[in-house]
């Protein structure tokens, strides 16, 4: 009897890993990657439609651009090294602001989750900040901290810290009391509770928070540089716009979009690799 149950479990378990590909081994490339191809198709169609619409609508490159010109502008920005220079400049405050957001956000979040009263006390204030368009504070930050790395880093920090606070707090609150009792009943110490239960419970929440925070941090980079910069990718977008060099402006915008997708998908991939136990949840 035990073996019957066990074997049934194997079949169910394997199906989860191997998927339908195993039951129908002779599949074409198209069938195997259908979902990915469908996704790509919509992108290609969108670009094609954008390009094609100017066959009927008159085109004025001072007001709009199209994919072929954007691609040329992009190559131009790459060959002169401008694009990489701007990205390198922007990445410095992004790095500082984001790392500070992780450290401060996770610390505050864990305290808010662990200490109920601190949680009740701070929650309305934090929610207010999280829900409000904090970019409105950007001019003020520029007045205080200037247009250098520190001003930009602070705006990026302000925008990306809240997802870490809320997710870390939610993670701590979601820790299963039963698992705490399990470890305590086996003679686990306070340190064991942290290492074996609390940290593994909270970590996936923080990583999920990272995905949200990346998008907000990128907004922070752009807004900070619109207001307060003399170089950087956001400044480049604003400047090319002012110069009516819309092909290059779009090239910068699309570069930022690609970076956003790569970063968030990278985190998603890392999530699957690091937390295989969450796949089925």
């Amino acid at each position: 009897m035990a073996q019957i149950e066990a074997r049934a479990g194997t079949i169910a378990g394997d199906a989860r890993f191997v998927g339908a590909a195993d039951t129908a081994p002779r599949q074409s490339f198209v069938e195997k990657n259908r979902n990915l191809l469908l996704g790509l198709l919509s992108v290609v169609l969108f670009l094609a439609a954008w390009e094609a619409i100017f066959l009927v609508v008159p085109f004025n490159k001072l007001f709009i651009s199209k994919p072929s010109l954007i691609f040329e502008g992009w190559l131009d920005l790459i060959s002169t090294g401008e694009l990489f220079h701007d990205l390198a400049v922007s990445s410095v405050p992004f790095f500082y602001g984001f790392v500070a957001a992780i450290v401060v956000g996770v610390a505050i979040g864990i305290i808010m989750g662990w200490r109920q009263r601190v949680g009740y006390a701070l929650d309305p204030l934090m929610t207010m900040f999280y829900a409000s368009p904090l970019v409105a504070l950007a001019p003020l930050v520029v007045v205080f901290f200037g247009v250098g790395v520190s001003g930009k880093a602070i705006i990026i920090f302000l925008l990306s810290v809240f997802p870490f606070i809320f997710n870390a707090a939610a993670g701590v609150r979601a820790v299963d009391r039963l698992l705490i009792n399990v470890v305590r009943s086996m003679g686990g110490t306070e340190k064991d509770l942290y290492l074996k239960v609390i940290v593994p419970s909270v970590l996936p929440y923080i990583v999920a928070g990272t995905r949200i925070a990346i998008g907000r941090a990128l907004i922070g980079v752009l807004v900070a540089e619109f207001f307060a910069a003399s170089e950087g990718i956001g400044y480049a977008i604003a400047r090319f716009g002012d110069l009516f060099a819309l092909d290059k402006m779009f090239a910068c915008i699309i570069t930022i979009m690609i970076i956003a997708v790569v970063l968030t998908e990278g985190v998603r991939w890392a999530e699957r690799a690091a937390f295989p136990w969450r796949v089925g949840q």
Partner: peptide, 18 residues
């Protein structure tokens, strides 16, 4: 307990009895 072969499975991959 009759779980040989399931050493590296995660709990969510198991039935209640397992």
């Amino acid at each position: 307990v009759g779980l040989r072969g399931f050493e590296s499975h995660y709990p969510h991959e198991l039935s209640g009895g397992m």
